[in-house]
Design a protein around this nucleic acid. Structure first.
Lengths: 203, 203, 203, 203
DNA sequence: AATGAATGAGGATTCATTCAT
DNA sequence: TATGAATGAATCCTCATTCAT
């Protein structure tokens, strides 16, 4: 059996190659249509057996894909968020960078959206809930700090997440220009900060 | 046979029965997992051939299902929306009734969400775009009337739609009490009206 | 039950309509692909039940189609053959008219070829054997009359039939001009008369 | 695995086994009735999935079958044709060996005829046209060499091919004795050589 | 560590036919 | 006489997974 120690996002050799092919495939044909056969073909593998050898099942592969994509997207967003000062600015950075990552990693974003859509009607909702949970905690902190208005942080977290995903989905459909991307990102951030009753949230 | 002319939502006999079974099946197992075999079983049909007899293909059946569900949901929402006076109140009614319909027609909503999720990664996006388009027009009108603030109506329409769907999805996952449903609905309406800069939007 | 007395080629009402639609359908999509559904559609019928009602089964329908087509083709050929004087001239007329009927009744010929092709690998070979048998008798008569050379009439009949069908098939594939049709017909007749050692067979 | 590069007729392992089973099946029940299920059964396979694994689709399998059968038949004919001296003798050898191969490889011939019949009413006519084209070229050469009379080589090639197939079909229907096979072959060659105006074509 | 052949269930769809009305 | 709904077997094909090598 393969070594599992310490491996999280950064896969080794074949695994990484398969995950990369899976990301591309899912981005192209969608989560449900992404069969082992298609992924193997894109990876230049001669059989699907290879995939089953490295992954327990489709579930396992998808989890690995999700981890990889989330890591990529998170890395992009983190530096923008950490550069922001104050809760409101952080929220703005969160929203805007989440939109702008479409321009930087279109395939990854597309794949993630497709996986999330599948998850919504599926059993495993770990990626989904973890993401919303983290945002909710952040919002709660902001409220405690008095930088946000009064709202139910669970509802707000879901609303923000849903709004972002809807916009991202729309932007993914037809390739948007950088300008329109930036515009949409700012618009969305503006309206969500208003919703959150953020103090001093001028962009 | 009963009249087939003018048939839109209200299907005749067997067709209606199949659509109803499809709604239930999609609500239970999701759009992608809803095979003809499962639907036929739920409808008490002896073979899948019957479905193919009444519907051109899966696409055709899903369209019929979408029409049926949209009709049901729309009927529920319409009376609440039409009872509202003023743009802001209408928007609030739109949002709240869209959430509350989960309590009234849980299976229909679940099915619709699953179909929409599939549409997002699919070709036919008619249901999706029509829904967002209608809301966008409504928002634009509200801005002209001076009852909403300044925002890009396209982005706002997507944001509202996405926020609603995210909350509905969450509420669908585990059966919520009426109280929590009402609470969530009001919370979401509050925050979205803030986002829209609605004047005089106290619930 | 429907009256069956005296009916041979000339069908009555519905039957004739269905046969006509079947001829067209077989000509267009081929014998094997010509399903009841397609024939019903072309006939403007709302269900296939109608066909099953008028015909015992597919076999029965195809037999009726064959009779109809053979009658049409035979009528075209007969007047040309009967106008010819002498065995050799009759054979020439047989061959040439068999080719030229492609120009006059393309759909019928196409349908007949498709049915014959199916018959070749099927059980019922009545149309096929009857046709060859008649020609064989004719050839045998010609030999007795001393107007043909020495050959096995069974083999010759098969050879002539096969040669005609191969040419007709080729001519059916892409629509031929009248000129090329006439040229091919004369060429084939020439070579087959040579094969039969026909005396005084100048066209 | 054995080399798959350069694979044409001689298939490797399972592929060859499936092709062989397909030949037998097509010979028995005909091209159209030869389903994957029947072929799998004859091949001793547990499911039709195996066939789909080795062949892209039915089309692909049939192409492989055609190649295999054509190779077998061609090999049989080639040595007889190459032993002949002179154009007329070559044509005689072509015709006679084409008939006599029925005795040597009945199943292969039957399968080929069924496939060709299907091709006549189908889209892919590559096997058919290639075969006729090669014969046409041969005839044209013979005419240039002055060993054949005057005729349209395209028509003659079709006539010869059609005559052969008709006779072969007839001989395939009920198992013929070697004697009658030889007789029919000689008869057909005689008459076709007469048709071609071959000089010095005494058998 | 890797391969690719094999599996068998399940996918949608088409088919000729039957039957109650 | 005619209809159209119902049937269920059969079509090809794809799927994730397993297993011997």
């Amino acid at each position: 059996m393969r070594a599992t120690r310490g491996r999280t996002f950064t896969e080794t050799g074949r695994r990484a190659q398969i995950v990369a092919a899976a990301v591309e495939t899912i981005a192209e044909v969608g989560y449900q249509q992404a069969s082992f056969a298609k992924i193997a073909k894109k990876a230049g593998l001669s059989s699907t057996g290879m995939i089953s050898y490295h992954f327990t099942g489709k579930e396992d592969l998808v989890r690995a894909v999700a981890e990889d994509v989330v890591a990529t997207v998170t890395a992009f967003m983190r530096e923008r968020i950490e550069a922001a000062v104050g809760r409101a600015a952080r929220l703005r950075a969160y929203v805007e960078s989440n939109i702008e990552v479409v321009g930087a990693h279109p395939a990854h974003v597309r794949a993630l959206l497709s996986i999330l859509a599948g998850e919504r009607s599926g059993a495993d909702t770990s990626v989904l809930t973890e993401r919303v949970g983290r945002l909710e905690a952040e919002l709660r902190d902001g409220q405690r700090a008095g930088e946000f208005g009064d709202f139910d942080p669970a509802v707000m977290a879901l609303a923000i997440t849903g709004a972002i995903d809807a916009l991202v989905t729309s932007l993914c459909r037809e390739p948007a220009t950088d300008a329109s991307l930036t515009h949409s990102a700012k618009e969305l951030a503006d309206l969500l900060l208003r919703a959150a009753g953020a103090r001093g949230s001028a962009s």
